[in-house]
Amino acid sequence: MKVILLKDIKKLGKKDDIVNVADGYARNFLIPGNLAVIASETSREVLDDQKQERADEVAAKVAEAKLIAQELEKITLEFTVKVGKDGRVFGSVSTKHVEEALFKQHKIKLDKRKFKPNGPVTHLGLNKITATIYGDVTGVLKVNLLAEN
């Protein structure tokens, strides 16, 4: 019997795959457990529609992420830090500080775990941080550390 999988099933297939399984396995386990539906003509059409909707959603999110990436290219966040002798920075600016400043100043919400390098910024002057926005779309944000007088 041909069924369309509704969830990933180990050693059988991934979600939305059409697989051929034994009739008893389908009737007694997959269908009652809401793991699969019978692959009729109607269910195949519904599957195609769902795949198209997901593809459209992903395309919209990628387009939005590209716009955010273009905005990030124009932004330079400035932080003042205490500096000792020889230009050594006391403390640092963490990715959390960068995330908060980006939201407060530009209303752009990014997760601090998506920044690369994901460690703190400790060098005076202009530093570049790459942010993964969605999937493969990344943007570069400039962070300028200024010495406190």
Rank of each mutant, 00 (worst) to 15 (best):
M1L: 03
I4Y: 01
L6F: 10
L6E: 04
L6H: 09
D8M: 07
K11T: 15
L12P: 09
G13R: 05
D17N: 15
D17Q: 13
I18G: 04
I18F: 04
V19N: 00
V19K: 00
A22E: 00
A22P: 00
D23P: 01
G24N: 09
Y25L: 02
A26Q: 00
R27F: 01
N28Y: 05
F29E: 00
L30S: 08
I31E: 03
I31Y: 04
P32H: 01
G33A: 05
L35P: 03
V37A: 08
V37D: 00
S40R: 13
E41R: 15
E41Y: 11
T42W: 10
R44V: 05
E45S: 15
V46S: 08
L47W: 06
D48R: 07
D49G: 12
K51L: 11
Q52A: 10
E53L: 08
R54Q: 10
A55M: 11
D56V: 03
D56Y: 05
E57I: 14
V58Q: 13
V58W: 10
A59T: 14
A59W: 12
V62Y: 08
A63Q: 11
K66Y: 06
L67G: 13
L67N: 12
I68N: 08
A69D: 09
A69Y: 05
Q70Y: 11
Q70F: 15
T76R: 13
L77T: 05
E78T: 09
F79P: 02
T80H: 08
V81K: 07
V81T: 09
V83P: 04
V83K: 02
G84M: 08
K85V: 07
F90N: 07
F90P: 06
S94N: 02
T95D: 02
K96S: 15
H97K: 08
E100C: 08
A101Y: 14
L102F: 07
F103W: 15
F103I: 14
K104H: 15
K104E: 15
I108C: 06
I108E: 01
R113L: 10
K114D: 12
N118C: 03
G119C: 03
P120M: 01
T122W: 07
H123Q: 14
L124N: 00
L124R: 01
G125K: 08
G125I: 06
K128I: 14
I129E: 00
T130G: 05
A131Y: 02
T132P: 03
D136L: 07
D136K: 09
D136V: 08
T138S: 12
G139V: 02
V140M: 13
K142L: 03
V143M: 03
L146S: 11
A147Y: 09
A147K: 12
A147F: 07
E148I: 11
N149V: 12
N149M: 12
N149K: 15
N149P: 14
